[in-house]
Every structure is written in C-alpha cells, then in structure tokens.
Design a protein around this nucleic acid. Structure first.
Lengths: 245, 245
DNA sequence: CGTAGGTTTGAGTCGGGTCAAGAAATGTGG
DNA sequence: CCACATTTCTTGACCCGACTCAAACCTACG
C-alpha cells in the first residue's frame, strides 16, 4: 500500500522521486498498536514522531472533572507531534481508536530532511498550515453550530479527508467511531449524540451500527452543515519558485 | 520599545545578537491601523505576513447566518499567517480590535531567514507549536467548560500571554475587549457574557468599564478555571544541539 | 446635544445535559 | 456452545444553562 503521507503531499506539493524515497525511508520502524492503547500520554516526554499509516487515532485532553475533549481525529497520513522534540512534556495524549499501523519516526531525521530539501520543508509547512486551519474549523464548529449541524460538519470533514487517503474510494465513507468518541470530539454528551444520529438515520443521511457509521448522503450533510472544504485545501496548489528558493 | 516577537523568542530559544538584528530588520514597513479595520478579509489573496507590534487584533470567521466566531486573539508579538504565501486565498479574516501597530513582512524574507539560520527556523517552529497548542486549548475550553469557567480561562490565558510582552508588567492586566468580542471568542452570546462578567465583578475577580476590563484576582480566576499554563510554554526551554544541527 | 456603539436587565424559551434503566452487541472463559 | 461480563447503544423524564427578544440606559464622541 502507498504511504498515505506521500499521497497527501503529492496532492499539494511538488515532490520528485528522490523526495518520495527520502520520506518513505522515514517509515522504517512500523508498529501495530491495538485499539485503546495510548501512543502518548499527557505529561510524558516523547522522542518520536508518529505517522499513522492505517487506522484511526485521537488527540485528547482529560479535565480534572474526568471529562475528555478530543482535539483532533488522526487518520492515515496524519503526523502526530511534528515538533515534539522541542517539548519537555506533551500537553495531551494520543489514543488508538482502532487497531492501527504507525511509523515511529525520529525527529532528527525529519529536521535533517527539512533543512536539506526545500521541497520537503515546503511540504511540511503546508502540512502545518492545513493542521492549523482544521483546528480552527473545529473552534468555529463548536462555537457557532447546533448539535445537528455540528455532527454533520464533522462528518463532512472526515469524508473529505478520508477520500484523499482511502484505499477504497468507491465505497461510501465509513467511520469507526463510537458515539462517545463523537461526543468528546464535538463538546456534546454521548446521549445527545445518540439522539442526533437517530435523526440523521431517520432522514437517511447515514446508517450506523455498533462502533461505526456509514455516510449515505454526503451532499445532504454538506448542505445541512454549510460545509465548505476550503480549509482542508484538497485542491492542487503548487509552490512558487520563490518559495522553493 | 523592544520588538515583542524577539522578546518572546528569547524566552524560549537561543538567538544571538545577529539573529536579533535579522529579525528586527524584517520590521521595516510598520503601519498604523485604526480599530475596526480588516488587515485581511476572508477569501482575499494576501502576500504579506503581519506582525503585531502593539494593540490587539482577532482572527475570525463569519458564518452564513451572520454570526461570527473569533478563532484567535492576537497580541503584540503575534504573527498572523506565517504561511500565507502558500494560500491562494485566506480562510478567514483579521480585524484590529484596537488601534494597532503592525509590521508588514514579506513572506520570502522569512523563508530565506528560516532556510539560512537554524536558530531562527527553530524559533519559528517553536512559534507554530505554541500557536497550535493555544488553538487546541480553545477547543477544550469551548467543548468542556461552562460559561463562567470558560470566561475565567480565557482571562488567565490572556494575562499569561500579556505578561510576556507587557511594557507595564506591574500593572494588573487590562483587556480592551467588548463583551461581544469576548462572546464571539468563546462561543457565547454577548448577553450571557454580560451576566458572567456581572458575577465576576460581584466576586471581585475583575472590574470592567465600557470597552475594557481589568483583572483584580488572577489566582482566583486560575483556580476557578482550573488553569494550567503548560500549553503556553512560558518557561525557558533551550534547543538541543541536535535540533540546531 | 444627538447619535451610535456598547452595556444592562428582565421574561420566556429551548437545546442539550443529567440521571437512570434497559436492550443489543461483542467478547471471555469454561 | 453456553453463561456471563462488558461495552455500546437506546429511550424516557426531568432540569438547567445559555439563547432569544426586547427595552432601557450609558457614555464617548462628532
């Protein structure tokens, strides 16, 4: 299977065959992590960057009162903690939501590539930009949308991101998320997510089974959420000569 | 007055006198922008990075229904759109919340510094890391805290950030924010923010006047919000030799 | 002054939270 | 292959925090 990080990069940035090899070479140390295991725990010192190759993970933060907020859902091709080597301790944890394949990448290796190859530095800058834009889109979602549109918006985002790295692009998007995970990602309760999903099922926007759901009507969800995929920058945009030096 | 970006960098990263000069040299084109003016409007193509030298600004997004969500408050020393040159069009707007001084910096100049001087590249990586962590802290705040603690948490964050770049560190922190701006930053309504501020005033945590408020009891607010300043990384952390290459 | 932007307050509503109990899958060990 | 435990989902009744709408009130400023 193709390296999903490279698939994503090539959508946005010019990488030649040698660049691709250099990135591929980072993914030597690949491991299987079962569902529910923490790749990183809050407060730990971690000296490796994680690249999700398959499966889903979540970045989360626990509050003193025991509640959890998921701050990012991590799909294949997502890098976790690109700059972790600058931190004495991680600010938050990362859990596997499904069994996953992860590459453990030494931060120095990335720093070296970045410093040597402008095209790779450019790709990583792009990566940071999209990551930031996604995080901000979550703020907008939580701050200014009601539960129904909020859930719909998340599903649109995930469908769009998944489409880029999916091995089965013809299948309707499927999310291996429990209702509690959706709730923790959106600042809702699991009970209320249940009622929202019930409504979405009633309107035939989705189907759901224990531990996962499938999108039936993505255009419908997009309209409901007022979804605009700009912030994910799924379209092609090549670097200028100046930016590449 | 000292360049607030340099003040921030020197807290976290090693920069020698030459590095400082190089950064200072970026801030040649300084402009005054009155309150209420948009530095950037959503959908525009913008070919300059903004560095706030004094005053407050906000990054925001407007929704079709007319509501606004502020996704970041920008204080002196904050860079807006570090990677803007990679974008065909900005995903969101930036307004001056007070009269501000801004340096207009050409993206190429930063790219060149970054590529040439590892210590500056390191400082900018650090900057991105803290920016991301702050954005994620906002998600947690909006997702899992009630209005009172949510407001308190924002005030703690702003006090902490301001302390680093304040010209009057002995004065109690003062925020030139309207209640509507606070509401738009926190996913609340102005009416409800008014009631929360009333309560904070009653408990003598703050005082407020038209168009601004002052913190009286920061420790009290921190306790109320369960505030932990880790994510802002206000403490010193020097780069490793490896990271600097 | 007059006006516009900002603040304050009240009354009523509603979206989503809380609590609690039960049902349906899934997994585990004998 | 069955008995039992666990996780996840579902549903109902009730409640409360925050929103809405509306009116009045400041206060800075032109």
């Amino acid at each position: 299977m193709d390296n999903p990080l490279i698939v994503r990069f090539r959508r946005q940035c010019h990488l030649d065959a040698a660049d691709v090899d250099r990135i591929d070479y980072l993914c030597t140390d690949v491991r299987d992590v079962p569902r529910g295991v923490n790749l990183v725990r809050e407060g730990e010192r971690v000296e490796r960057i994680h690249l999700i190759l398959s499966g889903w993970a979540a970045r989360y933060k626990l509050l003193p009162n025991g509640s959890r907020q998921i701050t990012a859902l991590l799909l294949p091709g997502d890098l976790c903690d690109l700059r972790c080597s600058m931190l004495a301790r991680m600010d938050d944890g990362i859990v596997a939501l499904t069994p996953i394949h992860v590459a453990f990448v030494p931060p120095d290796a990335i720093t070296r590539l970045e410093r040597t190859w402008p095209s790779i530095a450019h790709a990583l800058s792009w990566y940071c930009l999209v990551e930031q834009a996604t995080t901000r889109a979550w703020i907008v979602n939580m701050g200014r949308r009601h539960a129904l549109e909020r859930v719909a918006h998340l599903f649109c985002e995930l469908s769009t991101r998944l489409a880029v790295v999916s091995d089965a692009p013809d299948q309707p998007p499927h999310f291996p998320l429990t209702q509690e995970e959706i709730a923790d990602a959106l600042g809702l309760t699991a009970v209320h997510v249940n009622r929202v999903l019930h409504e979405l099922r009633r309107r035939e926007f989705i189907t759901s089974r224990r531990g996962g759901l499938t999108i039936l009507d993505l255009p419908g969800l997009k309209e409901m959420a007022g979804f605009n995929d700009n912030y994910l920058h799924p379209a092609m945009a090549m670097p200028t000569e100046a930016a590449l030096g």
